[in-house]
């Protein structure tokens, strides 16, 4: 194992409905800025985090049109995290659970994501400095 830490995260939640993804994104951001190697295994609803067909919308409650609101989507944040990791000498390897993708029709992910299986989670975990499983509730 190299001296640079490698962290694996297993996540299960979709983009917006709970606080867990916010915290996980913050953790990945810190690790990416440090240039760590990061593996993400997206299980269940988490396969929608990098879904390419996400679209921004206006927010009438805020009184903003779509451009004024300019709210980043989870797919944009993941793409930005991949760039940040790379710019700092690390890598963010995002694996979507293939069966979960099929069940949900979430095949259309942003560039840089790949399809995998639970074996990928185990192999990543075995080769990592540490693994954090973020269970859903």
């Amino acid at each position: 194992m190299s001296s640079k830490p490698t962290l694996t995260f297993s996540i299960m939640d979709g983009p917006f409905e709970q606080a867990r993804i916010t915290t996980v994104m913050r953790l990945i951001d810190i690790a990416a800025r440090r240039g760590y190697n990061i593996n993400v295994f997206a299980y269940e609803g988490a396969v929608y985090l990098p879904f390419a067909k996400q679209a921004k919308h206006a927010n009438a409650v805020h009184g903003h049109d779509v451009d004024q609101e300019d709210h980043p989507l989870s797919k944009d944040w993941i793409a930005a995290l991949m760039k940040t990791a790379q710019a700092n000498g690390g890598k963010l390897d995002w694996v979507n659970c293939g069966l979960c993708v099929d069940e949900r029709g979430a095949q259309d992910s942003i560039e840089g994501c790949r399809r995998g299986s639970p074996a990928d989670l185990w192999n990543s975990a075995s080769a990592s400095t540490n693994t954090l499983v973020v269970g859903t509730r």
């Binding site: 830490p5 962290l7 913050r26 690790a31 400095t129 693994t131 954090l132």
Partner: peptide, 17 residues
Amino acid sequence: ALDVVVDQLAEGRKAIW
């Protein structure tokens, strides 16, 4: 800061969410 969590993950602690 949340950085402490990343520090301790990188240290290899048994981490439980």
